[in-house]
Simulated scan of single mutants.
Amino acid sequence: MQNDPIPLIRARALWMRRTAFTMVHRAQLGHPGGDFSATDILATLYFGVMRHDPARPAWEDRDRFIMSKGHATGAIYTALCAAGYFPEDWLPSYMQNGSPLNGHPNRNYVPGVETNTGPLGHGFPVALGIAIAGQITGRDYRTYVLTGDGEQQEGSNWEAAMVAGHRRLANLTLIIDRNRLQQGAGTEETSGLDPLDKKYEAFGFEVQMVDGHDVSALLGALTAKGDRPRCIIANTVKGKGVSFMENVAKWHHGVPNDAEFAQAMAELV
């Protein structure tokens, strides 16, 4: 890895946003708001934090990443493509019949996808199991899982948190994309989550709150280690980078018309 990964991470994040929005515009399907809130997190993980090898997706000592908010496929597919897991010429097939790049990531079709996700609340329990396996076998890989904040309303997350804290899984990092919007409304209006940090602390996690678009802050938080599981609450902006999308709930699954696409691409520079 180069001495200063920040310029590369920022460049990859910009490419990911532009490419994901192009995919959504072409398909007229997708979840661009959540893609854009998660992009900087994924770029930081794949290009500054995780130990992984796209030539060996099943390498036993790789770090594992679980995209629990599986609907944000524009973000995860562009991250995997930029990292070299599959060729760029797959991207125009996004959401088309027969494409490996369907509406939720499928490990049977897409190299680098650790587990199928989509039903919210499932990714964190899977990551828990992977981390427990590493603890039992003594392997030094780390497991990272990204959830949405609305997804925290699923009870399976809290069952996983209880076990992770009990087992002191220092090899597990939970990242929460805290953009405060879910489908149709704000998280606090729908089913309040705050104080989210205190809740995870009560389960035995080391908790850190960061700006989810500050690459330097993300690097520091995601590379820190301790003797307990970590929870990174990444404060983000839904639709980050495009003025008419930022903090607007409809862009959870909105798709752009031609004029909106042109404006967004002009802003994403």
Rank of each mutant, 00 (worst) to 15 (best):
P5G: 10
P7L: 02
I9F: 06
R10E: 15
L14K: 12
W15A: 15
T19Y: 06
A27I: 09
D35Q: 02
D40I: 00
D40P: 02
A43W: 00
A43H: 04
L45W: 11
F47S: 01
M50E: 05
H52M: 06
D53R: 10
W59C: 08
D61C: 04
D61E: 14
R62I: 06
R64I: 14
I66R: 01
S68Y: 06
T73D: 03
G74F: 01
A75H: 09
A75D: 13
I76Y: 00
Y77I: 04
T78F: 02
G84A: 08
W90S: 07
N97F: 13
P100M: 08
P111C: 14
G118P: 08
P119G: 05
H122L: 14
G123D: 12
P125Y: 10
A127Q: 01
A127V: 07
L128E: 08
G129Q: 13
A131E: 02
Q135K: 15
T137H: 11
R142V: 01
T147I: 13
T147D: 03
E151S: 06
Q153D: 04
N157D: 12
W158Y: 12
E159H: 14
H166P: 05
R167H: 15
L169M: 14
L172N: 00
L172M: 03
L174Y: 05
N179L: 10
Q183M: 14
L193H: 00
P195R: 08
K199T: 13
E201S: 12
G204P: 06
Q208G: 01
S216W: 05
A221T: 00
A224C: 05
K225D: 06
G226K: 07
R228L: 07
I232P: 00
T236K: 01
E246V: 02
N247A: 14
E260N: 05
A262L: 11
L268C: 10
L268G: 09
